[in-house]
Simulated assay, not measured.
Amino acid sequence: MKKALLALIFSGATLGAASAQVEIGLKVSPSITSLRVDSPSDYGFRNEGSRAGIGGGVIVDYFFGQNYAFSSGLFLTGKGGTVSYFDDATRSRQQQKFGLQYLEVPVTVKLFTNDVATDTKLYFQVGGSLNAALAGKINDQKFYKDPGNGNAETKAYKHIILPDAALLGSFGVEYQLGQSTKLLAGVTYKRGILNIDRYFDNTRKFRDVTIKNSEVALDLGIKF
């Protein structure tokens, strides 16, 4: 009985190892990003516009079944947008255009269909991403002078909380070009779930202001 059980476990492990497959590739993602803002009505925070960005990096798909993969990677991504608010100190509406750069690590599951056409599959990807801010600009400058704070100059990078996280959803198509080469194209939506504001809360002492990232990207890639 023990021998039979050990043989079954060993054969299952061997089959799992044989079926496991890792595919690595490169991806570039032009995107439209924006900032979701919320605050008490006294401050009047609102989204004033989106920002065109681009990202790219390495894809890693680890298959644990024929049509199922754990998908991750490492990506450099541009985010940001334009927000405005009413500043009681200047009795006027102020506007800030954020340009942010993040390093992202997706933590997702990717599900593939069977062939919908010759050598062509659809995929659906769900999960999240863990992000770290690397750099930032406000109004295209690395330093920002706040007219509502006596024109005090601060580093734009210091206005945001460095870690961020997002929910991620994606769908697309993958085409088998050769024995191990695949082309992919898809659309991804990332919805930030953490408040990234550090300046209005800590420096200006504004109450209950939240700023969160949003992104829609076109994914174009190749796997080897």
Rank of each mutant, 00 (worst) to 15 (best):
Glu23Ser: 08
Thr33Pro: 02
Gln125Glu: 14
Gly56Phe: 04
Ile161Ala: 07
Tyr85His: 12
Ile59Thr: 13
Tyr199Ala: 03
Gly221Asp: 07
Phe45Arg: 06
Leu184Met: 15
Gly128Met: 10
Ala52His: 04
Tyr175Gln: 12
Leu35Gln: 07
Gly65Pro: 00
Gly99Ala: 12
Gly25Val: 04
Gly99His: 11
Gln101Tyr: 11
Leu220Cys: 08
Asn47Glu: 13
Ser72Cys: 08
Gly44Pro: 02
Pro163Asp: 06
Val126Pro: 02
Val28Cys: 03
Thr113Phe: 06
Ala20Met: 15
Asn139Gln: 08
Arg93Phe: 09
Tyr43Asp: 06
Gly148Lys: 03
Gly186Asn: 11
Asp219Ser: 14
Leu194Phe: 12
Thr188Glu: 15
Phe171Met: 15
Gly127Trp: 09
Leu74Cys: 10
Lys142Asp: 14
Pro30Ala: 08
Gln141Glu: 15
Gly49Pro: 06
Tyr85Leu: 05
Asp219Glu: 15
Ala17Gln: 05
Phe206Gly: 00
Phe112Val: 02
Leu26Ile: 13
Arg36Val: 07
Arg46Met: 09
Gly127Cys: 09
Val83Pro: 03
Leu167Val: 13
Leu5Cys: 01
Val116Gln: 06
Thr108Tyr: 05
Asn139Glu: 10
Phe70Asp: 01
Gly192Gln: 02
Glu104Cys: 01
Val60Gln: 02
Phe86Ile: 07
Leu15Pro: 01
Ala20Lys: 02
Gln101Lys: 14
Phe143Ser: 13
Leu168Gln: 11
Tyr189Val: 13
Ser129Ile: 06
Thr154Phe: 12
Ser71Val: 03
Asp38Arg: 05
Gly25Phe: 05
Gln21Val: 07
Phe200Trp: 09
Ala69Lys: 03
Ser71Ile: 04
Leu122Val: 14
Ala135Arg: 12
Ile59Pro: 00
Lys205Ile: 03
Asp42Glu: 14
Gly172Arg: 08
Gly186Arg: 08
Lys2Cys: 07
Leu168Phe: 01
Tyr102Met: 11
Gly150Ala: 11
Ser180Asp: 15
Val107Pro: 05
Asp115Gly: 00
Ala89Glu: 15
Thr77Met: 08
Ala165Trp: 03
Asn202Ile: 12
Phe171Ser: 09
Asp201Glu: 14
Asn195Met: 05
Asp140Glu: 14
Lys158Thr: 14
Gly127Pro: 05
Asn67Phe: 09
Ala117Trp: 09
Gly12Ala: 12
Asp42Tyr: 05
